[in-house]
Design a protein around this nucleic acid. Structure first.
Lengths: 226, 226
DNA sequence: TGAGAAGCTGAAAGTTTGCTGAAAATGCGC
DNA sequence: GCGCATTTTCAGCAAACTTTCAGCTTCTCA
């Protein structure tokens, strides 16, 4: 994900919350707009066409529900509502009117971030082309993986293998499973080829003590992120 | 638990509730299907074989009770009913017909989640990949067992054996039974090999006084958790 | 109390697994 | 066709693991 390409509009009448979100989201690299009420929000949304709108339900003037309806007519934003705890009906109502997701107050910032990412993945897949996995970043489009900020120089097979291992980090993967996933299901050769490629990945990662790509004897390999 | 491996079918004629549950469960990582009525639910259940069916009692067409009966014939789903408050008879009737649990409306999402997890643990233990057993935790996916927070370094056979003992803790297991379970029932060797492996587990667990893995002379072994 | 059964132990033998260096095969651009 | 990078195969090796076994200890019950 190129966070800097993503535009987010935060709508809430409580200034403290707005500032909190604005700062946090800026830190994540998003472009952020804010509005203190529904009407401002709608006109701002028309203008900047944000990808995501974060919307408090409880607001003076047109409330969150009304704003959702107005926004729906303006474009396809991912709308995430902020609702009070115990207001199940609010959430249901909001979803009915066209919101895409909700977060219950009080929420952790990480939780909100997760929802934002989920929505973006869903509605704007073209924006998502970067996968951060611990100290690794997978750039699908460029077919490149960086480790601790440095791009690795990988062959095609090495890229596929490392990508598969990273996506399944923390899980033991048998050589057969790896073969099926990376070499394809009809690969005729021996699974020693997995060992050979694991070796070259370990070399390129400087993983001499095999802490990163662990061998689970008799079972397979497992990536343990630091 | 790998939530992404768990399939849940939500059946309710109120669209708002369906969407609320669908989103919430999706956010938890489950695969979710929905149906607006009993007949659709039954045919969908036949097709996707969900692990859990969440079923409103009050529905047009065949009501929840009838659907429970139909589902029971199709497979072993965990069925959780949604019932109205104060309808004690409904709950009893539902449970009698084969539902596994019920949640009273209005319910909190957390409450429903807890029920779902409980049911999964019960009926689909293979999906639950983290077992906490006293001071041990078995991580199936990682193929790792931790003891008092520290991962144990186990060979393949040791892992299988300890896993089997822990899952059956509190129960006396004969050497023959252990052989069948861990080595396979066609193992030709002597059961002394069980003794040998029990020894190495005791060593790795620091169980010098044999309080953890007890020898029940003439009967077998039994793990007693502190 | 002592004989026999059951279980424990140290060590050795046997087996499997994964790692390695190197060579052979393949594919690609020029 | 040639040179180069990559992919695949292979055989030898070392380490880890599994299995066996004989002698020893502990327990049980007559």
């Amino acid at each position: 994900m190129r966070a800097s390409d993503v535009k987010i509009l935060v709508v809430d009448d409580e200034e403290s919350i707005v500032r909190f979100l604005e700062l946090g989201l800026r830190n994540e690299g998003f472009q952020v707009w804010t509005a203190p009420d529904g009407l401002t929000a709608v006109s701002l949304a028309r203008e900047v066409q944000p990808h995501v709108v974060i919307l408090d339900v409880m607001m003076p003037g047109p409330d969150g529900f009304e704003v959702v309806q107005m926004l729906r007519k303006l474009g396809s934003f991912a709308i995430i509502m902020l609702t009070a705890k115990d207001e199940v009906e609010d959430r249901v109502k909001g979803l009915n009117l066209g919101a895409d997701d909700y977060v219950v107050k009080p929420f952790s910032f990480q939780e909100l971030l997760a929802r934002i990412h989920a929505r973006l993945r869903n509605q704007f897949p073209q924006l998502v082309d970067e996968w951060v996995v611990g100290p690794f970043t997978i750039h699908e489009q460029r077919r490149e993986i960086t480790y601790q900020g440095q791009p690795l120089s990988l062959s095609a097979t090495e890229y596929e293998l490392l990508r598969y291992l990273l996506i399944n980090h923390g899980i033991v993967l048998s050589k057969q499973k790896i073969l099926d996933a990376v070499w394809g299901y009809d690969f005729g050769g021996q699974d020693n080829i997995v060992e050979v490629y694991i070796r070259s990945l370990r070399e390129k990662l400087g993983d001499t003590d095999r802490q990163l790509i662990r061998t689970i004897r008799g079972a397979g390999y497992r990536v343990d992120l630091p």
